[in-house]
Design a protein around this nucleic acid. Structure first.
Lengths: 211, 211, 211, 211
DNA sequence: AATGAATGAGGATTCATTCAT
DNA sequence: TATGAATGAATCCTCATTCAT
């Protein structure tokens, strides 16, 4: 056992845990310092393993990060879809999906920042572009939010805006807020979340003329 | 003078130009490759100066980046305030400020990404926290958007939400869209910009009860 | 037993076989990639054993290689001496020994290259020097070729040249050709071998004055 | 100036010398320990420069070695051809070329071993095969020895053997002897060299029937 | 003032060897 | 006895920074 380990492993160390330790350390550090700002040696130290050990589980640093992204991204999507009911109104479904982003971000702050960073990296941009243009991404399936918007537009419930703009109106504020929350700049209580979600809906919903 | 320089400087080089060349090169490269992904040698090459020369203008790489951030951030704020008229309605002032973000981002994509990256870096987070809590940031002055929101809330024109949430609702979508635009994922024409700005206003404006 | 082993060893593995597998794998790989170019892990994989197992048979990598060299070198000498008849003429005995080198090299290309490599390594040079000067090498016995040359010189059948030069004249071309053959640069048929052996004899035999 | 330098540089260090120092150190060390047995750090130490400096002159270790080989190989060929007179008899020309190998090897022992090692490496074998089969090697020109043999065979002065065998008969013993000489196993005086050259000629020259 | 050659600390990765199972 | 996961020293290479010119 590495004497410098920061993780206490009393009595019985989980033999499967090493891979998890590496993944956790990577998410935590890269979400904070970025890919190039996080040396493998630091990951190893944080994970409580030797540097060489990381290469038993992952071919190289790129692969390590890519696999973590896939895993985190899938968990993220699952959170969004958990309890998703296609029979609900468009508004309720919208709120469900957006609330999921809040939830995931608050409960998995490191993962959230990791995913965000990845999407903003050159690799992530390429990924997004492929998904946008070829619809041939990892899973091949559209984001449910996109389907929802398309459907809502047909129903004249969602504004006539480019999909990318609608996505930005829905996700942009939430991502922004969650990052502020993670940075400790704001405390996200239930009331704030609900109000913000309602405001996001105001942004995308078709103007009913009000009058 | 670097013989491999890509910038011809015949006869009389503007001695003040060198600093600008370095700054421009840094913004362009770091906005694309990130801080750790951009070696000083590459900046020197792109700027058409010797690597050592950079250290005559900036103490070290950190300082270089920090000063560029301050400069770009100030230019950004100036863009927002250009033509800003405190006598306009709150809505018009909101639209003016937000449109400024679009404008700046589209006209200065490198600077925009640079600023965004900086704010998301560990250093940037610290900076924002200081500004938020101590109000003792670089300029010490609040964002005009924050003043506007506070004023609008008092007038019952702006939703009763934490300032950070309002900021997120206003800026989040725009930053999102501009990044997509820079990445080439969407073409931002005037119509889309206007509609999006209107939607942002829908998000922050006080619900008038549907009258 | 390594499940990825390329050598099926069903039911009952010959416990003595493991050492042989390791040796064979080592010879094959080192003859191709060199000492430093051949990791223990690769030897283990090729041998179908665990990496740790190798250390049950050999103290370390150096020892492994050294023992293999001794073994291969002895086998080589035995090949040369097989069927050697001290009653034959000097020429026939010379041809017998030299033909043996051809035979051994063609039939054991990996071993041949391994031995050659070893002799050219710093360790091999030391070994040869010790043998030459102290006559206290591994077996302590002279190469039969040296004895033969000494005898032939006394008979005025072999040229008056330093022993090392005679050895070079006899062995040099053959080693050269066998390496070319192993590298696939030439096809060594019986005719070529015989002619080359005759030419080697021409090189070392005493000039009979053109009679 | 590196205080650990092993090369005294009194008074005036040659500013161009650094590249030469690196090359010399590389030749010396690799000729002794081989490519994989010679770390860059050792080369740097021996050359009296920082490790990073090597990469200012050579892209990477492979390039360093390849360039040195080309340079040494060209110098070697020049030595062979220096004073070569196509009007001399085939025997004299043969002796001239072969004596050149002796000369080069004795005067440039490190380079000689370096070249030899390179030719025996996987890369070198490929090189030789290309030269042999495509005649499209570095310079594209045949070894003069090969031309000489082809010419001599037509004149019935050289034995009817495959070219590779003749080359082996001529070069093999000399390379062998020079290596022994470098290893300190034999002292090559003029008499030994001349006698050995004569013996090499005996090996390749057409048998005149002895009568 | 300007340069870029030189440096060496630091980064990613490999691999001989150990040791718990 | 046999294994292969784990290790960390050692390797190749990069790059921020210095400094002689």
């Amino acid at each position: 056992m590495n004497i410098h380990s920061t993780k206490a492993t009393p009595i019985q160390v989980n033999p499967i845990g090493k891979r998890e330790h590496i993944i956790d350390a990577t998410i935590k550090l890269i979400s904070e310092y970025g890919f190039h700002g996080t040396p493998i040696s630091l990951i190893a130290q944080e994970a409580g393993v030797g540097a060489g050990t990381i290469y038993r589980y992952f071919k190289d640093k790129d692969t390590l990060v890519l696999e973590i992204f896939k895993q985190a991204n899938n968990a993220f999507k699952e959170t969004l879809l958990h309890g998703y009911d296609a029979n609900q109104t468009i508004r309720d479904r919208f709120l469900h999906l957006c609330r999921g982003i809040f939830q995931y971000g608050i409960q998995n702050p490191y993962e959230f920042k990791f995913i965000e960073q990845f999407y903003n990296s050159p690799y992530g941009t390429t990924l997004r572009r492929e998904k946008l243009f070829c619809n041939c991404g990892d899973t091949g399936q559209e984001l449910p939010l996109e389907q929802l918007f398309a459907f809502g537009q047909a129903q004249q419930i969602i504004k006539k805006l480019p999909l990318a703009a609608l996505i930005a109106l829905a996700i942009g504020p939430i991502v922004f807020l969650v990052k502020d929350s993670i940075a400790g700049l704001i405390q996200l209580d239930e009331t704030t979340i609900n109000s913000t979600l309602a405001a996001c809906w105001d942004a995308v919903k078709q103007d009913t003329g009000g009058r």
